[in-house]
Design a protein around this nucleic acid. Structure first.
Lengths: 239, 239
DNA sequence: TTACTTGTAATTGTCGACAATAATACTTAA
DNA sequence: TTAAGTATTATTGTCGACAATTACAAGTAA
């Protein structure tokens, strides 16, 4: 599995390496969401000093995987439905704009590459008649390519450098194998078409709908999973 | 002048305090944009150890004011026209969405407060017939209130916690006293109206136009300041 | 029993020193 | 004179120890 994103340079220092290890552990849930982080304990586990560990923790904080309070300590970020929905809202804004910029700034070569990639994904999908592979790898690849295609360093840094780790964390922890795979593939096709047509406005709109559809899919799932009782319970709490 | 934003808790540790001091120095240009940061030098200047300084540097990196390379060191971020325009693009996406969410999630009390604030700003503006005060304080206050009104922690953290310092830096260093003050005031009024009407779609559109107008204002200014010769020079470089 | 206070243990923040890496200056050969 | 290679210097990364703060526990009074 591809764990590193193309925007970050390779980890050279030990703090970098430990950062990646802990990051992986948090994303995969090996270090539970919401749990407290003990600096001495983790430092001992990874055979490094506390200074080095704290350096790694700072990077984890940078991509919103842990939260620190002064003189109290660090906690792994707590996954919640509200947090997930907020993340989708943010993605819709940022990736929508990235898609618009991609339609303006991508080179013809980049567009050709993306079309080739999509074609390959389509074949793989046909082959496996399938959901899992495309959903995991292909979807991320597609979104990555679009974001990088914006040629906007600010957007790239925010989405690829910070938000995407959180997204992966939610995917792992909430086990998101949504049945939207084939529909998502069609949506991707239309988005690339809009980019190839240099239609930024349409490209943004399609990307926003694509992400909003995933969000609504989750919202529906949640409300279905709730029994009537639970819903009334929440109603009571809210009032 | 109000330097702290409402999202961050008060600085308790010395690293926090030094962080704020350096942050201020960078934003105001006392530490020049693009200059290299010497850890021993700065640590000596602020009378702290290098560990503490590095802690502060990590926070500065978090809000994109400095950039670090492994085994090489830190540099203050370099202000550029391209960077500024990219920042506006990002703001347009994030604050536009925040505005949409504000129209959905703000309480009636919050909306009333904002209307009162705007009224006050209007009077101050009339009084001074003026540009400077409203442009500096009022504009930031307005945008802050809208962002917080989104009630979306992710958006709030991204914009207020990270991008905002960069925005202030550009304002200081490029001396942005645009002549858009009175027009901006009208635009703010319409945005609040849309929020009060709970019209999220319109609110987002108006906020995006509001920010895009500032961006285009800058783009025009730049292309005007360029002489014909310089433009052809750039044309040559691009081709 | 409960609430408050005090004392202890553990955790985080800060420090100075050493190791590893990168930048610079110097030397030597062509 | 220039180029490459080497030695030196300076800077960053890492370490272990101490100080300050917080959390926990025991004890006391109501």
């Amino acid at each position: 599995m591809k764990t590193n994103n193309p925007t970050r340079q390779a980890a050279v220092t030990t703090a970098d390496k430990v950062f990646e290890q802990i990051q992986h552990a948090i994303v995969e849930g090996d270090i539970p969401s919401g749990s407290k982080i003990s600096e001495p304990e983790l430092a001992k586990y990874y055979q490094i000093s506390r200074s080095t560990l704290r350096e790694a923790l700072n990077r984890l904080e940078k991509c919103h995987l842990i939260e620190r309070k002064a003189n109290v300590g660090s906690r792994v970020v707590k996954c919640s439905i509200e947090g997930l929905l907020e993340l989708y809202i943010t993605r819709e804004a940022l990736e929508g704009m990235a898609c618009r910029q991609a339609a303006i700034n991508m080179s013809n070569e980049e567009i050709s590459e993306m079309q080739a990639m999509l074609k390959m994904h389509g074949q793989t999908q046909e082959l496996k008649d399938g959901i899992a592979y495309y959903q995991e790898e292909g979807d991320l690849d597609f979104h990555y390519k679009v974001i990088l295609g914006s040629h906007n360093k600010q957007l790239i840094e925010l989405i690829c450098g910070q938000l995407y780790h959180l997204i992966r964390m939610y995917r792992c922890q909430f086990g998101m194998n949504s049945p939207r795979a084939s529909r998502a593939f069609d949506e991707h096709s239309r988005i690339i078409q809009a980019i190839a047509d240099r239609d930024g406005e349409l490209a943004e709109m399609l990307m926003r709908r694509h992400i909003a559809a995933s969000r609504k899919n989750i919202e529906n799932k949640i409300s279905k999973e709730m029994t009537q009782q639970e819903q009334t319970k929440i109603q009571l709490i809210k009032s």
